[in-house]
Amino acid sequence: MPTYIAFLRAINLGATRKFPKDAVKLATEAAGGTDVETYLNTGNVRLTSTRRSAAAVARDLEQAYAADRGFEVPTVVFTPAEVVAIVARATALADQYGPVKNHYIALYADAPSAATATAVQALEVEGERCVVDGRAAHALLHGNIHSAKLFRAKQFSALGVGTSRTRAVLTTVAEKWCTDVD
């Protein structure tokens, strides 16, 4: 059975969007996931599934999560090989652009259009920049995420609704769950 890595958006924020790791695991299993593992309380999930596409897995998970929690939980799903490629690209960008204070990676269900990707990549807001590669947008920040002007730019918003992780979290996810990828 194929393995997938799911990233849940906007859980455990505030009093109304609680979704503890144990509940995530149970809901993932209810959606047909097996060999389920979670990492951190921010919605990083490894599972195997009889489904043959990440999009089908995402649909199943979103339905199960909404049924369990009573609110929508946008979920982005990748194969382990895709996660490894995103982490490799992050490493290459660190080599290319040098050290930054924060490297966030926004993950999307669908890749943006070429025009949208080009527009956001043309931005450089006070030294902040974004590099789009498929369904991942790498935000290279010199400050913290809360004060980043890049995220407030209309070009970045045009990428759509995604979920972000730090480079460190994605690297750990790849090391924990993607070791069998060639």
Rank of each mutant, 00 (worst) to 15 (best):
P99A: 15
R46T: 04
R46Q: 14
V76K: 00
L140C: 01
G162C: 06
A64G: 09
H138K: 05
G98L: 10
T38K: 12
K176C: 00
Q155M: 01
E175W: 02
A90R: 00
G14T: 07
K176S: 04
E72G: 01
V36D: 10
A137H: 07
G43C: 07
G98Y: 12
Q121I: 03
A115M: 04
A6I: 09
K176Q: 14
N12T: 09
R167V: 04
V181F: 07
Q155R: 00
R89C: 04
V173E: 02
N102A: 12
G127H: 11
V169L: 12
L141W: 06
L170D: 04
L40H: 02
A139S: 13
V87R: 02
P80C: 10
I11M: 01
L140I: 02
P20D: 11
A56H: 06
A139N: 08
A81R: 13
S49V: 01
S49N: 05
H103D: 06
D68K: 15
R46D: 05
Q155P: 01
Y65I: 08
R69Q: 12
V36C: 12
K18C: 03
N144A: 05
R9W: 01
F151E: 00
T118C: 00
D182H: 04
L26W: 00
T172D: 13
N44A: 03
L107P: 00
V181G: 07
D60Y: 08
W177T: 04
K18H: 12
A117T: 06
T3R: 15
E37C: 03
V36N: 08
E126Q: 14
V45M: 09
P2H: 10
I145V: 15
L141Q: 03
R52V: 12
A64Y: 02
G143T: 15
T172Q: 15
A64E: 03
D22N: 11
A81W: 10
R17N: 07
